[in-house]
Amino acid sequence: MSTISIAPVVRPVRPATRLRLTSRGRRVLVALAALPLAGGIAFAAISGGDAMASGDEVATASFETVTVLPGDTLWSIAESLAPTADPRAVIGDIERLNALGTGSLQVGQQLAIPAEYAH
């Protein structure tokens, strides 16, 4: 009986060509990469530079505030401010106006009250 063996054919791998840049090529590559950044800075400088440059007075809003007492919750504050309204809507308005991320309150905290609920 004879034995047959199969050997894989190994071909030499051609080395990858190395990219070589001249100093001029590097400058061109850096300039192309910096173009979007320069365009963004120019756009920001042109569009955002005159926000308050007009000299007009800015209207300020005044709010009534409520001081949080021990045991107060947003629900109890909402019910005392607008007894006939849905407390969930009042709580949502208070949270948006005061940028409250969570429903937790601190004793002594000042909460601005939306104008429609102020007395």
Rank of each mutant, 00 (worst) to 15 (best):
Y117R: 05
G108C: 09
R24T: 13
P36W: 04
V13M: 06
R26T: 15
R26D: 15
A33V: 15
A61E: 15
L111N: 09
A82N: 00
M1R: 10
V13T: 01
V58K: 00
L81N: 01
L100T: 09
I41M: 09
A34M: 08
V66C: 11
A38L: 04
A82W: 02
R11S: 12
L69Y: 10
P12Q: 12
T60P: 10
A7E: 15
D72E: 03
A34E: 08
P15L: 01
I4R: 14
A78C: 02
D93E: 02
P36G: 13
G92V: 08
P70Q: 04
S76P: 02
P15D: 04
L32E: 11
A115I: 07
W75D: 13
A78T: 00
L97E: 05
A115W: 06
G39F: 00
S47A: 09
V10H: 08
I6W: 04
P12C: 14
I4V: 14
T3L: 15
S54V: 06
G55Y: 01
D56A: 11
S5Q: 12
L29C: 01
L100V: 10
A44F: 06
P8L: 01
M1I: 12
T102H: 11
A33L: 15
S62A: 12
G101P: 05
L97A: 03
V10R: 10
I6K: 03
G92F: 07
T65H: 07
G103W: 14
T3F: 14
